[in-house]
Write a protein that binds this DNA or RNA. Structure first.
Lengths: 148, 148
DNA sequence: TATTGTTATACTCTATAACTATA
DNA sequence: TATAGTTATAGAGTATAACAATA
């Protein structure tokens, strides 16, 4: 007798496990979840202003200052002057930062493959579709509830 | 062409959305994620020592002191003397705390039902089984990686 | 001697508000 | 006047280490 609550509980459990697994990997490299999230964003967007990062991470500009301070100190990123706007700075990945993100992509790929290694193609297709449906429902809930 | 990485990304996205939704509900009541987690644990275990809660939440005893201070101040829980061990205290839910947990169960049930409201019985069964399989795989990964 | 909870101290993430330098 | 980033200040979550009371 499966029901929605079971699904919800499982999703919560999975979320927790993924978080734990990721912090276990990042800790040694001197990275935290928040800092990694910032680097990840820079990795995908390319050199970005702190304002852009604040918007992308849905976090205050002040917070970004702190995170950039930390990853700069750790050698993962660098502040560079914006070529045309002298008020702004561009956050860029260093070689070390680029390497860290590449490692992360690789390790995430391994985990991802392992998660569904039992599934045949049809099953994976169905499961993916179901996850997409649940995600869409969640987005609906979020949009309904916070009309701002 | 679905693959494991898509699944992984979706799971991350779902985790994020659920977190956001939950904090949106808890904020108004004066509760945070960490405090709610503690109350949730007390709700399920019954009156518990802080040591037991620290173990259950996988958090330091010192941390539990702070969280209990906060939920006690907020009127959600109470410290009571342990009947046989005078070193220990039992954390118990107040009426307000019990009500808050009941509300949470109800609201979580609504969300959960909505998430899979499109699914017919067979689909829900399959989806649940797939989620269980993924969860089992994640547990494997966690156990492998942290031999401690 | 071991355990329970607390005080002391410190680090990270987060926020708002005020300020500086530029647009 | 508005925007980019910083300083100032504050609160929450987390940790370790030292300590008191009790087992």
């Amino acid at each position: 007798m499966p029901d929605g609550v079971h699904v919800f509980d499982r999703l919560l459990e999975i979320a927790l496990l993924i978080q734990q697994d990721m912090s276990r990997e990042l800790g040694p490299a001197g990275l935290t979840a928040a800092r990694t999230h910032l680097l990840w964003e820079v990795h995908h967007r390319g050199p970005s202003t702190q304002q852009a990062l604040a918007a992308a991470l849905q976090v205050s500009p002040r917070n970004v200052t702190g995170l950039v301070d930390a990853v700069e100190k750790g050698g993962f990123a660098r502040r560079e002057p914006h070529p045309t706007d002298r008020r702004a700075t561009l956050v860029t990945l260093t070689e070390q930062g680029t390497r860290a993100m590449a490692d992360m992509v690789a390790s995430r790929g391994q985990i991802a493959a392992h998660l569904v290694s039992d599934f045949d193609t049809a099953q994976l297709q169905r499961f993916t579709a179901d996850l997409d449906a649940v995600t869409a429902r969640l987005h609906e809930l979020m949009d309904d509830g916070s009309p701002t």
